[in-house]
């Protein structure tokens, strides 16, 4: 009977299995200094995840937490822009690559910091791009792993992951980390969003990823002049948290200054903490902070 692979010990000298284990160990070693790891996800694009993540980071940092933000959207990175660190030079030391520091000393790492200026797309060098669909996702997973293992995050109270659209992104990150504390699901009050987000929620459940709750972003339009809040979407009367079976963690109304602040690289909640939207963001941060602190005490 011919030999099978398992009949032969080792792999001839590369020891690939040990290398894979070592790569995982490097991630675990780096992440051991991070108390909480929280993903901000949606499954749907255009719901304002990145801006919400930046504001949430600012609220938590403002309450004294040591906060990091990792932009896991490699193809559409925006955290560097939203947190005002675009174009910053990163320092390399024997500890690794040091993330950029944004407002309130929020540590930021984003693919945007490595790409040439302008709207440079993420392209991987290869002799040929033919058949790149075979290896591209694997390359991106490796890049994410390197972001985790080779960034000198230091001691953090929380590391927020801004995930790209797409249902499989959250389970993939959870698998890479091994100990993701949970995910915050973001939607907007529209049936289209609810459909896409619903699929992501179900996939996360199938992978046993813990979902902390739902945030309804752009829930109403806040007039920057009179402060009144009106409907922005037609489906405002529905209750997506109930439909998706998640605890509701907050409803954040949209107002134009949120977008303007993001373009300037300054979190809205720092400039406008007392508006309805500012208060909603602060309340969301406080809820999350309490949730994560309580869980931390229980560990």
């Amino acid at each position: 009977m011919p030999k099978r692979s398992r009949d032969i010990a080792g792999d001839g000298g590369s020891n690939i299995l040990a290398q894979v284990e070592e790569l995982g160990a490097r991630v675990r070693a780096r992440m051991a200094r991070v108390r909480r790891k929280l993903a901000v996800t949606s499954g749907k694009g255009g719901v304002g995840k990145s801006v919400l993540t930046a504001n949430l980071a600012a609220v938590l940092a403002g309450s004294g937490w040591r906060v990091g933000v990792m932009d896991a959207d490699l193809n559409g990175p925006s955290m560097a822009k939203v947190l005002g660190v675009r174009g910053r030079r990163l320092r390399l030391s024997s500890e690794g690559v040091h993330p950029a520091e944004g407002p309130l000393a929020i540590k930021v790492l984003s693919m945007d910091l490595f790409l040439a200026e302008g709207p440079t797309p993420l392209i991987w060098e290869a002799t040929t791009q033919q058949d790149s669909f075979v290896w591209r996702e694997s390359m991106e997973a490796t890049a994410l792993r390197e972001f985790l293992s080779d960034t000198a995050w230091g001691n953090l109270d929380v590391l927020l992951f801004d995930l790209p659209p797409g249902a499989p992104r959250l389970p993939a990150l959870a698998g890479l980390l091994g100990d993701l504390d949970g995910a915050l699901v973001v939607t907007i009050p529209s049936e289209v969003s609810q459909l896409a987000v619903g699929r992501s929620v179900e996939l996360a459940r199938a992978h046993a990823v813990r979902l902390l709750g739902l945030v309804e972003n752009m829930a109403g339009y806040l007039c920057p002049h009179c402060g009144a809040v009106g409907d922005l979407f037609a489906g405002e009367s529905q209750f997506p948290a109930e439909v998706l079976g998640l605890p509701s963690l907050g409803r954040i109304p949209f107002e134009p200054r949120i977008a303007r602040c993001a373009d300037r690289g300054s979190p809205y909640v720092l400039a406008h903490p007392e508006t309805v939207a500012g208060q909603a963001l602060r309340a969301l941060g406080a809820r999350l902070s309490a949730l994560l602190t309580l869980e931390g005490a229980g560990r």
Partner: peptide, 9 residues
């Protein structure tokens, strides 16, 4: 990575 920023690190 293609199209890298000069002096990024």
């Amino acid at each position: 990575l293609g199209s890298q920023r000069e002096g990024a690190v």
